[in-house]
């Protein structure tokens, strides 16, 4: 696990180099969540709204909206597709994102319209980690692990 300013960034995920990580699943769907530095920048999340299963989202549109006491923003999908699952636990407890952004706090699973090119606009590996470190520096983020 790569770590920078206390922020964790798994090297095997794909990133939009802003807020979002993407993980390819065995069934061809793609799981989406927000990164550790993004949750740190957002602050303690108090509200999450995730689009319903069965909704089609175009590339760049929001699959979810998150809100903390100091920040409100959307979670964009880097590719077009149909939402096939959403994390209902986040609707009850959005703070989970601050605790386990890459695990229990995944946001949605999306079946891409074009699986061949769904990952064209996201990066992975060393290139992604270097860009995320620049992001952390730009926004002056320091990650701290939430205890609960």
């Amino acid at each position: 696990m790569n770590e920078y300013h206390g922020c964790e960034m798994p090297e095997d995920l794909f990133y939009d180099l802003d807020y979002v990580w993407v993980r390819p699943e065995a069934d061809g769907t793609l799981t989406i969540g927000v990164t550790d530095p993004a949750q740190a920048l957002s602050g303690r999340l108090q509200n999450a709204r995730i689009k319903k299963v069965g909704t089609h989202v175009d590339a760049g549109r929001h699959v979810a909206t998150l809100e903390s006491g100091k920040w409100v923003g959307g979670v964009p999908v880097p590719f077009a597709g149909m939402i096939v699952a959403r994390n209902e636990a986040l609707l009850e407890n959005p703070h989970l994102i601050n605790i386990d952004p890459y695990g229990d706090a995944w946001i949605a699973r999306v079946k891409p319209d074009d699986s061949q090119h769904a990952l064209d606009d996201v990066k992975t590996g060393a290139e992604a980690i270097a860009a995320l470190e620049a992001w952390i520096k730009r926004y002056d983020v320091q990650c701290m692990r939430c205890p609960d």
Binding site: D18, G60, R61, H62, G73, G74, P76, R138, Y139, D140
Partner: peptide, 22 residues
Amino acid sequence: DDLPLTALLRKGHRDLRVFFLE
């Protein structure tokens, strides 16, 4: 030219443009 303040404000603009379309 890479200030946290203006970077955050530009990101806010990007988010808002998508919300306006929605």
